[in-house]
Design a protein around this nucleic acid. Structure first.
Lengths: 186, 186
DNA sequence: AAGCGTAGCGGACCACAGTCCGGTTTGACG
DNA sequence: CGTCAAACCGGACTGTGGTCCGCTACGCTT
């Protein structure tokens, strides 16, 4: 998933790395919101066309930057130790996932938000959403598809961003986990 | 709420009406997504500055166009007949609200979506969201604030738009109502 | 009905996301 | 090595949302 076999030319790889490094630096320095794609291209010493060809759009760039962390979480779910991994009861795995996902979210809120809101409907198209949804659906069992969507709606970056100031991380986490448990119960 | 007392100059009123009419027409003709603000200004015979001064941004224009329908629903909640109005049990009012809100959503999905997604975080700032949230919180009782937010997350235009193709209106409605009932129950 | 302070106007202007295509670089093959 | 096609590059270009500010005309006052 990181770099599918179909080879990549040397200059292409160089540019990709330069872009990701420049983007990470600028985002850390000035905040995700206020960094333009022009600025990233310039800082990476690369033309705008290159930037967009490689990553599609701003959301795609965010996804690429998150790819590593996201992959770790997915790995832990697929083959890690309980309670996240396979050797635990479904309900427990669902709440563990919620906790872990919130950790991930809190750590990268702006970036995730950008990946979800840059293009309309972007969130539901990217592979990660499908992965989380599939996982929760299996855990919820039966007709769990809708409930999985509902939990993910409550975990949307936009939603969490809006609720954070009025609840704080602790209460938000506690309540969301409770919701997950309720949804897992049917 | 329609036109607060602080008087409005004659030309301003004229322009406001022209803009709303032009916007409604263009949206109906070409779809909300593909109509630019320039086009609306031109069709209304008005400068761009006027358009933005009156409505702030694209989301604001959408809100203004929805204002009437939205107001009707709010009125029905505050002082209409049961099960939407005050003379019904809380749980029943919550499911009735969900049904009514979905009707409203299905009828104006694109417009609502524009009002919620045009600016980042726009949804949670507009008065309507606060109204729905306050209402649900009261119905849910106790510590219902979070559950109210959760239900509204599932009713978000973006979320509904994404789920509609895979579920269809009927199933989506049924499942959402069930979720509302579950959340109302605690 | 003439004067005047001000709310309101409008289009030139800006920044930014995203596209296009003529020119360059790469590396596979001989 | 030299050749060549394809992959890749970069920056000029477009369309859009949103801002700014000198000018207009509205309507209150006398």
């Amino acid at each position: 998933m990181r770099t599918p076999p179909p080879k990549e030319r040397a200059d292409a790889a160089r540019n990709r790395a330069a872009i990701l490094a420049a983007a990470a630096r600028l985002f850390a320095e000035h905040g995700v919101e206020s960094v333009s794609m022009d600025a990233i291209a310039a800082a990476a010493g690369v033309g705008k066309g290159t930037l967009f060809r490689r990553f599609g759009d701003k959301a795609g760039l965010a996804v690429a930057l998150l790819d590593h962390r996201e992959g770790e979480l997915q790995e832990a779910i697929l083959s890690g130790p309980p309670p996240l991994g396979p050797d635990a009861a479904a309900a427990e795995r669902a709440t563990a996932f919620t906790e872990a996902y919130l950790d991930y979210l809190f750590a990268h809120l702006d970036l995730v938000r950008m990946s979800e809101t840059a293009a309309p409907g972007a969130r539901y198209r990217i592979g990660a959403y499908r992965f989380w949804h599939r996982h929760l659906t299996l855990l919820f069992g039966g007709d769990g598809e809708f409930r999985a969507h509902a939990l993910l709606a409550a975990l949307g970056a936009e939603h969490v961003t809006a609720l954070l100031p009025e609840l704080g991380e602790e209460r938000l986490r506690a309540q969301t986990v409770r919701l997950a448990a309720a949804l897992a119960a049917g």
